[in-house]
Design a protein around this nucleic acid. Sequence first.
DNA 1: TTTCGACCATAATGGTTTTTTGTTCGTATT
DNA 2: AATACGAACAAAAAACCATTATGGTCGAAA
Lengths: 192, 192
Amino acid sequence: MKSEEKKKIITKVAQNIFSKYGLVKTTVDEIAKAARMGKASLYHYFKSKEDIFKEVVEKENRYMKEKIREAIINEDTPQKKMKVYIFKKMEYLKELANIHSALKDDYLEHYAFIEKIREKNTREELFTVREILQEGEDKGFFQINDIELTAFAIVSALKGLEFPWSINISFPEIESNIDKLLEILFNGIVKR
Amino acid sequence: MKSEEKKKIITKVAQNIFSKYGLVKTTVDEIAKAARMGKASLYHYFKSKEDIFKEVVEKENRYMKEKIREAIINEDTPQKKMKVYIFKKMEYLKELANIHSALKDDYLEHYAFIEKIREKNTREELFTVREILQEGEDKGFFQINDIELTAFAIVSALKGLEFPWSINISFPEIESNIDKLLEILFNGIVKR
DNA sequence: TTTCGACCATAATGGTTTTTTGTTCGTATT
DNA sequence: AATACGAACAAAAAACCATTATGGTCGAAA
C-alpha cells in the first residue's frame, strides 16, 4: 500500500475519533489501534499528535471552503450569494466537528496553527463578504457608503448569531433569525 | 449608625474589591477588613458571600438600567433612541465591572442568581429594542414585517460586536462598527 | 442589637508519588 | 529503503496526602 494511502486512512480514523473526543481526550494509541497499527508507526507518517490534528482540521477546512465556494458560484444575484454563503457556512460548521472546534474552542487557542487558521478564515470571510458587496454595487443592486466597514459590520453581526445564548429564552430558529437579518441587511427598517 | 447605613458601606467596599479581584479571588475577610469590622459581623448583615456579590451586581444593574432609560427618554427619534441605547449600554458595561462580569464570565454561570439576571436582562433588552421599533412604526419612520423577529435579529447582531475577535486583524473601532451597523439597520444596502 | 474571637467543616493548595501518554530508539521484517 | 513495532524514556497528568485557607457559625461580651 502506498504511503499516501496509509496517511489518508490514518487521517480518516483520526478525524472520527477527534470529532468524538476532541484533541486532548484522544490518545495517540487510540488512533493507532483504530488504524490497525502500532502507535510508534504513526510517527513514520506524522511528526506529532498535533500534526495529525492539524491535518484533520485543514482537510475539513478545505472541504468546507470548497463547498461554500461552489454554492456561491451557483447563485446569480448578490443577495442570493450572501444568503447561501451564510447558510452553507453554518451547515458545514455543524457537520464538521473538528474545524468547528478549531475555530471556537478556547482551549485550542494557544496552538499556533489554530491561531493561523482562525485569522486566515476571518480574512477570507471578510474578503468573501466584501466581494459580494462589491458585485452588488457594480451591478447596481447595492448602494454602499464604505464597503470595507460594511463587511466588518456584517461579519461581526454574523458572529452574534453563533453566540450561544445559554439562557432560558425561547428564540427563533437560527434560520429564521438569519432570514430576518438578511432582510434588514438588504432593505433596512426605515420606511422606503 | 443605622443598620441600613452599615449595609451600604459594606456593599460599597465590596463593590470595589469585587471589581478588582472578582468573586472567587475576593475573601470575606478582605471585605470585612475594608469595612473595618470582623468577618463574623458581616453575617449579621448578609446571608453569605454570594449574597454580598448578588447585592453588588444588582446595585450596578439598577444603576446601569436607570442611566440607559434616562438617555433613551432624552432622544426624540427612534433612530437616536436605538443609537443611544447601544452606546450607553456599552459605556456602562465598561464602567461597571461587576455587572459586566456577571453577564459575561463563564465561571459564574452556575450561580442561580446570575442565570436569572442574564435572562432578565436579555428579556428586557429584547423588550427595549422592540419598543423602539414599535415607536418607529407608529410614527411612520419604520416599516417592519415582524417586529419580534427583528428585535431578536438586532439583539443577536449586537452580541456579535461584543465578541472578542482575539485574532491579529486590525478592525475598526467598535464605535464606527456600530455606526455602520446602525446605518445598515436603518437604510439597508439595497439601492433606494 | 451588634460585635468579634474562637472554632468548625470544607475547600483549596502545594508537594509527592504513581500512572499515563507522546515520542524516540533500535531491531526486525518486507 | 521503507515500514513495522516492542521497549523505553521523559514529561505530563492524575491521584493522593498533609497542611493551610476560607466561608460560615457559635457563644459571650459590650
